[in-house]
């Protein structure tokens, strides 16, 4: 399972970097969306995958019986998803505004502030 997830994360990273290096700003945003999902999946996988053992403590006991899934990575990823959702929403508005101002979906025409 871990191996499969690792390959999947690798493909997601590769695809997002490929998209980010295109000239179109829409593809840049698609690349960024994929990138944040890839990072979240990586976090999830690195935190350890445990199937069918929710971290619940039986009644009367003080610690869960046996090995259970670690709830912390999931909580952290939830935070990261919310943050990247907000940032990507901003990025979408930004490219719309940039498209209105520059009248092109082409990063090569946005070099005015470069050196």
């Amino acid at each position: 399972m871990e191996t499969l997830m690792a390959v999947l994360v690798g493909i997601a990273f590769a695809a997002s970097l490929y998209m980010m290096m295109r000239r179109s700003i829409v593809k840049l945003i698609i690349g960024l969306i994929l990138l944040s999902n890839a990072a979240n999946l990586l976090f999830f996988t690195a935190g350890g995958l445990t199937r069918g053992a929710p971290p619940l403590i039986p009644e009367g006991a003080e610690a869960p019986a046996g090995a259970v899934a670690d709830p912390l990575p999931q909580a952290l990823i939830l935070t990261a998803i919310v943050i990247s959702f907000g940032v990507l929403a901003f990025a979408l508005v930004l490219i719309r505004k940039a498209y209105q101002v520059v009248q092109a979906d082409d990063l090569d025409q946005m070099k005015g502030t470069d050196t």
Binding site: L35, A39, A91, A98
Partner: peptide, 23 residues
């Protein structure tokens, strides 16, 4: 707008790298 696209894209890339490293 032109400056912000580069700023947003590269800083997001760095943030995601940071997040992966944290993971």
């Amino acid at each position: 707008m032109e400056g912000a696209i580069k700023y947003v894209a590269l800083n997001l890339l760095a943030s995601m790298l940071f997040l992966s490293a944290v993971g």
